[in-house]
Write a protein that binds this DNA or RNA. Sequence first.
DNA 1: CCGCTGTCAAGAGCAGTGCTCTCGGTTTTG
DNA 2: CAAAACCGAGAGCACTGCTCTTGACAGCGG
Lengths: 223, 223
Amino acid sequence: MTATRTARERARAELTQEIKDEARRQLAEVGAHGLSLRAVARELGMVSSALYRYFPSRDRLLTDLIVDAYNAIGEAAEQADPGEGAPRERWLAIWRGTRDWARAHPHEYALIYGSPIPGYAAPQDTVVPAARVALALVKVLTHTELRDVDGEVAPELRAQAEALTKVLGIVAGPETVARLLMAWTQLFGAISFDLFGQYVGSVDPADAFFAHSARRMAEFVGL
Amino acid sequence: MTATRTARERARAELTQEIKDEARRQLAEVGAHGLSLRAVARELGMVSSALYRYFPSRDRLLTDLIVDAYNAIGEAAEQADPGEGAPRERWLAIWRGTRDWARAHPHEYALIYGSPIPGYAAPQDTVVPAARVALALVKVLTHTELRDVDGEVAPELRAQAEALTKVLGIVAGPETVARLLMAWTQLFGAISFDLFGQYVGSVDPADAFFAHSARRMAEFVGL
DNA sequence: CCGCTGTCAAGAGCAGTGCTCTCGGTTTTG
DNA sequence: CAAAACCGAGAGCACTGCTCTTGACAGCGG
């Protein structure tokens, strides 16, 4: 199968992309709640039913946008990583880059880190792209001298942590893995709280607090 | 003005409550996305337009449910606090109680800690009840010997932290306040990640990890 | 070159939604 | 007792996601 086949296939691929682009545009304006297939079709000069040749349902379109968003924020995190230099600086850069993307695309962020949209959709298609930001953080820790962190780890968590080290192929004790997961949680918890207005009464411009959290969590994981 | 006035007012108050109860019931089944005014009215044996005498819009109904949910999770946190005994145990109990409520009412939790529903609704009505869980945690730290935590704090964050200590009426350095905010973020970040399926590939039954986080964050704030 | 087959956009239509307005009837109030 | 306020019911508007059918066109084998 060559890269470009019949005119039909090319047209189909292009239109699929155009639909997603227009949907993303509307998503940024009215949010996931207000995204309307008919409005997307209208803007593209076609009729709503025609759109169903490309996406079987509104939820499927949203699911595709979700995967794209995961990849976009993951790429933002990877791009922010200088790739070399002081691990602490790399860690901070990834935190910054992730937050910056989220602030630039709040509705897309809400799509992936807010409430799950339908009954329950697509855990499988999203699990790989969803891990990209976390992997970027993990990558900083590999080939790096980690300060030893100690602490007891309950058996269940220890088992989960050891399974994770195998999957990730890193050398780190269970406590370090647990702290890494906490840092990951902290990163997105802070971004979500910031974007969703939870910091309003306390640290409203959350920039300083976010930078502080990034530093403290770097120390916390032993960096 | 007496507590119970005319029959009309009593009927109105009761019906308002019945509408919210039925809405909450449906919320638990179909989520905020699927909540329908007409379905609520249908279930209550009335016509949809009549419902608008009690709630001017669907979003206003949701906003009321949001406030109720904040109070419910806040009360769950306060109830979980034994109120006396070892501060560390109180801290852990509050974490557990908060998570338990969230797991028992996932859709209501998503309503308050997921993506904001409309354009942007009600930051003012919700700011006080939204703080109840955080206040329960803060309450544990008052009248308690805190292990000193040190670390530099940037001027902007320091100012915000000092303003917070005044509002909360606690005696704690800026670094402690910052760590408290991080613990608060960690608590809801972990609950959200758990409920929204973000832990699927890593610590899927998140119980052990959550308990671990609670302990580590207790130490982190100096408890 | 013809004709078959699969794909396509379009249109009509269904069931459902949030919301508005008007219309009688009841309750409260002055 | 009459005026005013309030209430539920119903019709209706504009919109949604989604389905089904129809007619046209592209790409292919013969």
